[in-house]
Design a protein around this nucleic acid. Sequence first.
DNA 1: ATAGTGAGTTCCTTCAGGGAACGCGCATAG
DNA 2: CTATGCGCGTTCCCTGAAGGAACTCACTAT
Lengths: 153, 153
Amino acid sequence: MQRTDFGEMACSIARTLDVIGEPWSPLVLRNIYVGITRFDQLQQTLGISRKVLAERLKWLVERGVLERSEYSSRPPRYEYALTPMGSELCDLLLVMVRWGDRWLAGEAGPPVLYRHHACGQISHVELTCSVCGEPMHATDVDVLPGPGSSDIA
Amino acid sequence: MQRTDFGEMACSIARTLDVIGEPWSPLVLRNIYVGITRFDQLQQTLGISRKVLAERLKWLVERGVLERSEYSSRPPRYEYALTPMGSELCDLLLVMVRWGDRWLAGEAGPPVLYRHHACGQISHVELTCSVCGEPMHATDVDVLPGPGSSDIA
DNA sequence: ATAGTGAGTTCCTTCAGGGAACGCGCATAG
DNA sequence: CTATGCGCGTTCCCTGAAGGAACTCACTAT
């Protein structure tokens, strides 16, 4: 894609995109999250090219989002698992799901439901403020320069 | 990018990626969110190619995320604004910021801070359950097939 | 008349994605 | 003890998307 280097921008969005902004990366993450952890399984369920899948997995492992581990030594076989860093990235997937369900699901309704362990109910994520606990959306905040700031105001 | 068509997958993540999964789209959204709403401003602040920017803006307008409006008729001049659909997409940006701040910010600290209108404090988003209000992360849910289901279990 | 501005569009080159075939290490079947 | 199959990639070629610079168009200001 001849990518501009997002990783060097002074913006956490750009830096996050540098890790999972490539096409397919979030879907790879989703599949590993739901238990599809092996190369051929991922390739078949996603319909991704093997070449690109190999590249993405390597990238995600290097960035610390995934861990590659041997589940059989002879013959050598590997599987991929989420690191803590990767698990937290899955929160992003939940928010994507929420938005897709609301705006793109159509008449058929959401393709997947989520049951919350704590209450046992089918629900979805809500964004709240870490300080006061009230809802916190993009329209509810002021944007201020922080310590690591440089470009965007 | 010779894209596989994510829009037709029975997965809200894929369908969301179909809308803003292209490289640059989230950054375009961010800039419009912070008040950079015109073509040349966007092009200069992002360092994106004019061609790609024109494509992205058109795509995002067609999908209902942005609105293009004339702010001067002679000479004709346009600016872009978030629709309600687009505003909700910015929630996704807040979650990306949170993850990037936590895992990628480095010693300099987060480049941007967010002050919550309701409480006036610098804070960040937290994911909670829409039913019980308790924290809800990817590790706190069961994934079940929904009404619009077909592939992924 | 000349220069400048905002919003694109056109053209060319280069690099990333798709797809199929191939390789390697091993296990089981005939 | 060949051979078929599986899991996990790598290599190859082809197409198409991203980058970048130049160009257009409709005006305004000097």
